[in-house]
Design a protein around this nucleic acid. Sequence first.
DNA 1: TATGTTTAGATTATCGATTTATAATTTACA
DNA 2: TGTAAATTATAAATCGATAATCTAAACATA
Lengths: 232, 232
Amino acid sequence: MAYTQHAKTLAEEVHQRIRADILAGRLLPGQRLKLALLCDEHGVSLSIVREALTRLAAEKLVRAQPQQGFAVTALSVAELRDLTFVRIAIESVALRRAIELGGVEWESRLLAAHHRLAHTPVHSPADPKRLSEAYAQAHAQFHETLTEACGSPRLLELQRSLYDTSELYRRLSYMLNRRRRNKAGEHRGLLDAALARNADRAVAMLAEHYESTTRTLVESGILERPAIGDAA
Amino acid sequence: MAYTQHAKTLAEEVHQRIRADILAGRLLPGQRLKLALLCDEHGVSLSIVREALTRLAAEKLVRAQPQQGFAVTALSVAELRDLTFVRIAIESVALRRAIELGGVEWESRLLAAHHRLAHTPVHSPADPKRLSEAYAQAHAQFHETLTEACGSPRLLELQRSLYDTSELYRRLSYMLNRRRRNKAGEHRGLLDAALARNADRAVAMLAEHYESTTRTLVESGILERPAIGDAA
DNA sequence: TATGTTTAGATTATCGATTTATAATTTACA
DNA sequence: TGTAAATTATAAATCGATAATCTAAACATA
């Protein structure tokens, strides 16, 4: 995920901060991002906020409309389905390569990442409805490690970018999911398949893992009403 | 490719202009892009050029180094190989879907795009060493049409972005390729395979099509010396 | 009451100037 | 003569102000 790398420029700093706000759900899909408010909030000038939002727009986390400012990207059902399809397509390729190329080094890191994930509480003690920040991190780390050994930096970056785009939908899904899907089991299965070098099974599990999240969201109907709140 | 959509803001206008300069090879890989010079050239203020370059950096067409400005992205051999790998991976998925989903409508457009490509002169009369602008367009169009029917806007956009990144390497390859590879034949074969709904053959041809371009470049050794010229 | 038009307020887009950081050059010292 | 510190020059990053544009409210008209 690479939150808070030591940013070398102010614009980069603010870019990462706003990005984190979006991914953590502090800024909601559809919400307008008014420049002046963001300036106050981060204590910087217009140019900085503009540059930050411009970058986020290029990453598709916010949408820019000329003369009308910026808003957090809100995915339609169709777009979420498409995103899921592309993620599965790309990660399948990466996962197959990783399973093919990864060595003992990779196996160890994967095992470690899974162990951390399995032992991180899903909900924060403070707000039991929400996903904890620590879990979100561990989850991202596990999925990243899974394909890490694929040997293609570019593919990995694509994967990370798409992961980010779907991050807040993933959080939503967690909050919605009443019948408590067995996430832990799915991760365990993924781990086992990868370590057993069973690419077909791993890929199938990954696809199901992603599709079920999307299904939960679509069936909940929460995506229909574009949760537009104003201001930042 | 979407050159010169009617841009609604100045920054977008300049962004597209610089982008076109890079893709057409008027700005070379490794070349530093000094803000002041670009301001003069396009008759705009610093902020505008900064925003344009920031976007190009997000698209990976230029590289930004904090406190040191921007430079046109120069791919190393390893990066070019990786790029090729990712392009093949992504377009393979898209092509298979297109072959599966595409209807008569798609076939017609593909046939038309191929016809146009086949009848556009490769070199411009003005500069017989360089690739003509018209051919570059037609080529882009053909490849875009090939996968158009895949049903995934996101996948197509990814494809286009990667196509752009490799655009100037493709042009280089054309200029270098002495033994005159049979490009026309490859395109013809791709067309036939697609129309015959032979996904495996089409994908294989596509992969070979891209890999041979990369091979030409790598073997030429032209990528080794990072063609750094200063100024814009 | 509904529709279209004008006007005031708010917000974004752009600019030119200032501040800050890096790179190049000179000077001092071993 | 070579290295390190100090100085200057160059370019990027940031800011605050102005111009252009949009949104919404108030008003007039049918």
